[in-house]
Design a protein around this nucleic acid. Structure first.
Length: 826
DNA sequence: ATCATAACGCTTTTT
DNA sequence: GCGTTATGAT
């Protein structure tokens, strides 16, 4: 055997031997795991087992280093070794230790790996799966979000950029209130200079790595007044951020990139350190994140990015799909692997999703497929209005629950949070437990922001923004004029407000309130001392007490204040959780870091069994047995803003693709002909995305043309067709809408006859009078909740609120008319 | 300082 | 249509 032939066979046998560790993967997944060296683009379709691949890839790197992907053959390898490997590779038994020794080439130390994700949730999942697979070794792997990785890097070296390592992080609303203030102070018209749009411009500039100085200078070279004024606002914003020793979310990444670009010794350290860089959700990266990733990977050039161009839905936040589309040209010698086998959805659903996304141009081109059979076709239901739409969804869910399904198998996805209202009502009417994800978030609540502001002020004395928030909260008689004086003096002296506070006694204009100011300064000072000496949870209790915040809430126990108190306590449980996780390392600064980067406490716990409602955006990365996409109408989804804008329309279509591919077994597309939104009723028509679905993969109601239309108008919506809504309780069993006519196999109870041809009167025109269908003491059976007894009937206009004590699920409150459809007297 | 009323907006939003 | 927010009056 020549050396050449020996090496060839050795390399092949080594790769096959390593592959035996990953037998559960499909071929493409395996390739992705074994391809360790150089730039790699992993196009991972929805549900293709992406995280599994990432975890196994890391396991491979730790165990075998580049063994599966190198031409290097150890000098000392013998023909006997080769024979041994070949036998093992062919399926034989072998000593694992010896195989490991023969296959490994530079196994990598865990701390040389960095895996970056976008969300804390993804990072946490990655971490826990790594721990499960690798045990303690996993602790040293940097598995975290872009932002937390940057914080970690900055805490070490930000002093090189003239910031103090104890910097605080401003979240979006902090930035917003700062910008509001700046616009007011610069005397700019808040219509033309809307704080949000100004911040968007700044964020874009930061993404292009344009400093305030550079931006303002460039703006001044133009005649564009607006641009020049935004330049001024940007300058002021940067100056204040610097003075407050604060960084916003963009800054975290921008400054890290700056640090790596301008400071070779820092760059070298990280480039040498990280032998392998992994980036998840690459289609969502913006320019800065691209820079950051490529800087990190600049040393060893082993960068693996995972993403799906078809799932890029955050362009409006600066994500650029270009990063993934041009990965191959950005990285010389890049390899691409496509994961197209889907393990989540059944055939029809996948085919429907494929047929929608096919209408986009500029794709990498991918077609998902599955081995799991055709399953059920997605169903289109057209409701008369949003009430009926919601009632339809509730009905489907109840029917499924009646067959033993779990509530949490169902998700309702909508385009915007405002749509959740109608759904909420329907769920309440029917006693369906639900949970809304998103909307007003925990950390956005005033009382939480207040408590966090106290902590920030204690932690960072120069954080004026936070200090101003709480200086008179609860009221301590420090009024607006005093605050204004304070600020003036701070600006002229060029020092943080807190310093002026301590000096108040010696300043004339402040003399009248000096005592109050001094007391406040003392309070913060005391708390600062306490933070260093007592455990964090005790510190927090002390804060609640000494600041008088708790007392303020307790003073008047309104419903609102009760919730606030609960929230404030909830924050404490965050602290306790943080302490548990970090043990002796738990510090105030550490906690604040974590909180600043944690928008939502993991409010989505899968333990509680309830239907989840959320926007399609938030649904990314999740999966459900049944998915309801509501509001599938032109003008809602796609939204008015994207109609006529080809790029936005494509993004909208990708969003549709994301939403559809969340469904494992059942997918419902629901729309309403008339919808009341923002106080106006508008007529809509079925979303173009629905029309794009191949007819053989969807159950549609018969063409609404002449058959159902009014007076022969072919696309008229106002057909007065009987709907789902509970308004005509006497008529249940009929008028369920189109969809059952095509039989999706999921109607419940009595099957309706063919749809009525047409109805002249508008639905719900004359509200029916209250007719009691149940009385207290009735023994009843509900299709989803089982048997029970009616304990209370409370008439409400033309309906009634029932209280039913169910044998299995306990007390439920139901609206009579809705309940009548699913519940019968025994 | 606190309450009331008027005015305003209003996609989506991993950090 | 509703919930937040800015402003003005007491």
């Amino acid at each position: 055997m020549t050396r050449e032939e020996f090496e060839k066979r050795f390399i092949a046998a080594r790769r096959s031997s390593i592959a035996r560790d990953f037998e559960k993967l499909n071929d493409m997944q395996l390739q992705a795991v074994l391809t360790t060296e150089g730039p790699l683009l992993l196009l991972a379709g929805a549900g293709s087992g992406k995280t599994t691949v990432l975890i196994n890839r890391i396991a491979n790197l730790l165990r075998y280093g580049r063994g599966s992907d190198t031409d290097l053959v150890p000098e000392q390898a013998t023909e006997e070794d080769l024979a041994y490997l070949e036998k093992y590779a062919a399926g034989g038994e072998a000593d694992r230790e010896r195989v490991g020794r023969l296959c490994a080439v530079d196994p990598v130390e865990p701390w040389r790996l960095i895996a970056i994700t976008f969300t804390n949730k993804a990072a946490d999942e990655m971490k826990s799966r790594l721990e499960r697979m690798l045990g303690e070794e996993a602790y040293d792997i940097w598995a975290m979000t872009f932002h937390s990785a940057c914080v970690r890097i900055l805490r070490r070296d930000i002093d090189r950029l003239g910031f103090d390592p104890s910097f605080t992080i401003y979240d979006t609303s902090d930035s917003q209130s700062l910008m509001k203030r700046i616009i007011r102070e610069l005397d700019l018209d808040d219509k033309t200079y809307n704080y949000k749009s100004v911040l968007t411009v700044i964020s874009k500039a930061k993404d292009e790595m344009m400093s305030a100085e550079a931006y303002a200078a460039a703006a001044d070279r133009t005649t564009d007044i607006r641009k020049r004024n935004i330049g001024r606002a940007y300058m002021e914003y940067s100056r204040r951020m610097r003075d407050a020793n604060a960084l916003d979310f963009d800054d975290l990444i921008l400054f890290t990139v700056r640090l790596l670009l301008d400071h070779p010794e820092v760059r070298d350290y990280y480039q040498r350190r990280f032998r392998y860089v992994l980036i998840d959700e690459y289609q969502d990266t913006n320019n800065l994140q691209y820079m950051f990733a490529s800087l990190l990977a600049g040393g060893h050039k082993n960068i693996c990015v995972v993403g799906d161009d078809d799932q890029s839905i955050y362009k409006f936040r600066g994500a650029t799909i270009e990063n993934i589309l041009s990965f191959e040209s950005n990285y010389k010698g890049a390899r691409t692997i496509r994961l197209e086998q889907n393990y989540r959805s059944t055939g029809h659903i996948l085919a429907a999703a494929n047929s929608v996304i096919r209408n986009n141009t500029g794709r990498k081109g991918k077609e998902l497929w599955t081995e799991s059979g055709l399953g059920e076709k997605p169903v289109l239901y057209i409701a008369p209005d949003e009430r009926d739409e919601a009632q339809y969804v509730a009905g489907k869910i109840l029917a499924e629950a009646a067959c033993g399904g779990r509530w949490s198998d169902n998700a309702v996805l909508y385009r915007m949070n405002a749509q959740s209202n109608a759904m909420e009502f329907a769920f309440k009417r029917n006693g369906i437990p639900y949970k809304i994800i998103g909307g007003t978030r925990f950390f956005e609540r005033a009382e939480i922001k207040d408590m966090l502001s106290y902590m920030c002020t204690v932690q960072n004395p120069s954080d004026d923004l936070r200090l101003l928030r709480i200086i008179n909260q609860p009221p301590r008689g420090i009024g607006e004029t005093t605050v204004e004086n304070l600020r003036q003096i701070a600006v002229t002296r060029g020092v943080p407000i807190f310093e002026v506070l301590q000096d108040a006694g010696r300043i004339d204009v402040l003399s009248r309130s000096a005592a109050k100011l001094g007391k406040f300064a003392e309070l913060i000072g005391d708390m600062r001392a306490a933070a260093e000496n007592i455990p964090l949870d005790e510190f927090y209790d002390m804060l609640l007490e000494k600041t008088g915040y708790e007392a303020m809430l307790r003073e008047r126990m309104t419903d609102e204040n009760v919730t606030r108190l609960e929230n404030v306590q909830e924050l404490k449980s965050n602290i306790t959780a943080y302490m548990k996780e970090n043990g002796d390392d738990a510090t105030l600064a550490g906690f604040l870091d974590e909180i600043a980067l944690y928008t939502d406490i993991d409010q989505y716990d899968r333990n509680s069994d309830s239907v989840v409602m959320m926007t399609m955006h938030s649904a990314k990365g999740l999966e459900f047995k049944s998915v309801f996409i509501v509001g599938a109408e032109e003008g809602i989804f796609p939204g008015t803003r994207s109609i006529g804008e080809p790029d936005e329309m494509e993004e909208e279509r990708r969003l549709c693709y994301v939403a559809m591919t969340r469904a494992k077994e059942r997918l419902f597309l629901v729309c309403a002909r008339h919808r009341m939104l923002f106080g106006r009723t508008t007529a809509g028509k079925v979303s173009r995305f629905v029309d794009e679905i191949d007819r053989e993969h969807i159950n549609r109601p018969p063409e609404s043309g002449n058959t159902f239309a009014f007076g022969g108008e072919s696309d008229a919506w106002d057909t007065g067709y009987g709907g789902y809504s509970g308004d005509r309780y006497g008529g249940y069993g009929r008028g369920r809408g189109f969809e059952d006519a095509v039989s999706d196999g999921y109607g419940y109870g009595r099957r309706p006859a063919a749809p009525r041809k047409k109805t002249i009167s508008r639905p719900a025109a004359a509200p029916a009078k209250y007719v009691p269908l149940f009385a207290a003491g009735d023994r009843v059976e509900h299709s989803a909740f089982g048997k029970g007894v009616v304990t209370k009937v409370q008439p409400t206009g033309n309906d009634a609120l029932l209280e039913v004590e169910f044998d299995a699920v306990g007390k439920k409150r139901l609206m009579m008319k809705s309940a009548a459809k699913y519940m019968t007297k025994l």
